[in-house]
């Protein structure tokens, strides 16, 4: 009897703990929503939701003054091109590293792991001045090349680990049947890479969509600016107009939330794969 009671108490405590964390995670979204739906002059508490007459003017300000739609378009372009390039270049680069473990290739893999640890701000000074000399500041190609180069190490690492887990006998069979190494890669290996490509694609796409540490410095003009730099700059300009900043931030989250709702399985599985 006592055991049953204490088990029920533990169960309640566990449930309360989980519920508390869930509420904490949802609270910032709720606060942003209530703030964004009230005019700037409305000083009512953020806890109260303006059910009777939601105010949409802040979203208009975010789009017209903040250029949020333009920034989202830029992010779609930069993130999708970067993601495709990272998947293609990463898969190709991983193949020799996974299948030809010479001293040279082991060295490359070690350098690749080392590059995964480089903090963005550590290369900021030389990277920024180099991009300035190349005329790559505020250009799509400049930021895409930087995003691809900084996203590749983790992607190569994931592709190489996955390829080593594939049975090599399939590739050997293809070679015995007369396929050369490139045909083997193209016709046999690449089609087997779908699961890891989902992981790499989601990781890169989300990472580039959210990236700020480098793109915040590379992209300062409203024409090419992606979403994170756009929000940061809009927020610092509008620090007296918090409802508009809240509206801009909410708009930026919508695509990520929609993608997450539909691809949740891949997102979580992808992340777990990435940690291994």
């Amino acid at each position: 009897m006592n055991a049953v009671l204490s088990r029920r108490a533990v169960g309640l405590a566990v449930g309360a703990f989980v519920l508390l964390v869930v509420v904490i995670q949802l609270l910032p979204f709720y606060v942003a929503l209530t703030t964004s739906l009230k005019p700037k002059t409305d000083l009512s508490s953020q806890w109260s939701f303006p059910l009777s007459e939601p105010f949409w003017g802040n979203f208009v300000t975010a789009v017209t003054d903040g250029g949020i739609l333009r920034a989202m378009g830029n992010s779609v372009l930069v993130a999708s091109v970067s993601t495709v390039l990272v998947c293609v270049i990463g898969a190709f680069a991983a193949y020799p590293l996974a299948r030809r473990p010479t001293a040279y290739n082991r060295g490359i893999l070690a350098i690749n792991v080392g590059l995964m640890m480089v903090p963005a701000l550590s290369i900021l000074v030389p990277l920024y001045s180099m991009l300035a000399q190349m005329g790559a500041l505020n250009t799509y190609w400049g930021v895409i090349l930087v995003m691809v180069a900084t996203s590749l190490p983790i992607s190569i690492f994931l592709y190489a680990s996955f390829m080593r887990s594939l049975p090599i006998s399939v590739e050997e069979a293809a070679m015995i049947d007369g396929a050369n190494i490139f045909q083997t890669l193209w016709l046999v290996v690449i089609p087997m890479l779908k699961p890891v490509t989902a992981t790499v694609g989601i990781l890169t796409g989300v990472g580039v969509w959210n990236e700020y540490a480098l793109s915040g410095y590379i992209l300062t003009s409203p024409e090419t600016r992606t979403i994170a730099p756009a929000i940061a700059s809009f927020f610092s300009m509008q620090s007296s107009n918090l409802p508009a900043a809240a509206a801009a931030s909410l708009l930026a989250v919508i695509p990520v939330v929609i993608a997450y709702l539909f691809l949740q399985k891949y997102f979580v599985r992808g992340l777990v794969g990435a940690e291994k």
């Binding site: 609270l27 910032p28 979204f29 606060v31 942003a32 703030t35 953020q46 989300v206 969509w209 959210n210 700020y212 979403i227 994170a228 929000i231 940061a232 927020f235 918090l242 900043a245 809240a246 931030s249 930026a252 989250v253 990520v256 997450y260 997102f267 992340l271």
Partner: peptide, 15 residues
């Protein structure tokens, strides 16, 4: 985890 820290930071600033 999937939301930009810039956005989460803005939300928490409001809070």
């Amino acid at each position: 985890v999937l939301v930009s820290p810039i956005v989460m930071g803005t939300f928490y600033y409001l809070l």
